[in-house]
Design a protein around this nucleic acid. Structure first.
Lengths: 99, 99
DNA sequence: TTGCTTTTTGGCAAAATATTCAATATAATA
DNA sequence: TATTATATTGAATATTTTGCCAAAAAGCAA
């Protein structure tokens, strides 16, 4: 993969997480997999809207689906998310400590 | 800050990095601060476009400006970015290792 | 099969974003 | 002061994204 392709894909990951509902979905999945119907209760949007958010997260390889009967369970695929989210808290509190 | 406000702000950080040019800018600043004119050469867009990208990154608290004469130097404010970017490489290579 | 549940997809209008050019601001210098 | 260099802002346009409804899949069970 070229540098350019990489940056493109990485930007896609950020973009996917760059929506409050999708970030909430990702956070919710930190504790373990959930079905679409669970996520709908959490996000409180039309189920078709939730499904489209899930599709975007899946496309970015952030989550992975698993079918169980009529339900589809999604699980988080990005183990470094909690750490990064924690780091963003510092920034938001103006506590950056970079070079 | 409420949970909802936090998620909103965090999503804004992801959104800001969710554009190839802005991610390239952030990556370029990992090595140290650069002026807008340097970044324009890297991104290869109109300088006003670059300036607007910088404005979005600044708004999200990802970068911070410093004026030096007529130049404005930006520096990265988010030390956990390289680690996270590295983690995304695993995901893109289907090497996730979460729970 | 038919009906039921869960999820995805298609279509569309509204909202948000990206880009460019022109105009403006800010600082240094002749 | 006038000029030059660097950067930001405003206005206009094109493109993309979002969210909802209706319709279609996909599986299960009677």
């Amino acid at each position: 993969m070229s540098d350019n392709e990489l940056i493109q894909k990485q930007a896609e990951i950020f973009k996917a997480l760059g929506h409050p509902s999708r970030l909430l979905i990702a956070k919710s999945l930190e504790a373990g997999e959930l079905c679409v119907c669970d996520l709908q209760k959490i996000v409180k949007s039309d189920i078709s809207t939730v499904s489209k958010h899930l599709s975007i997260l899946k496309q970015a390889k952030i989550i992975t689906p698993r079918r169980e009967g009529t339900n589809i369970y999604y699980r988080l695929n990005i183990c470094c998310l909690p750490t990064f989210l924690n780091c963003t808290k510092d920034i938001l509190a103006d506590k950056s400590n970079c070079s």
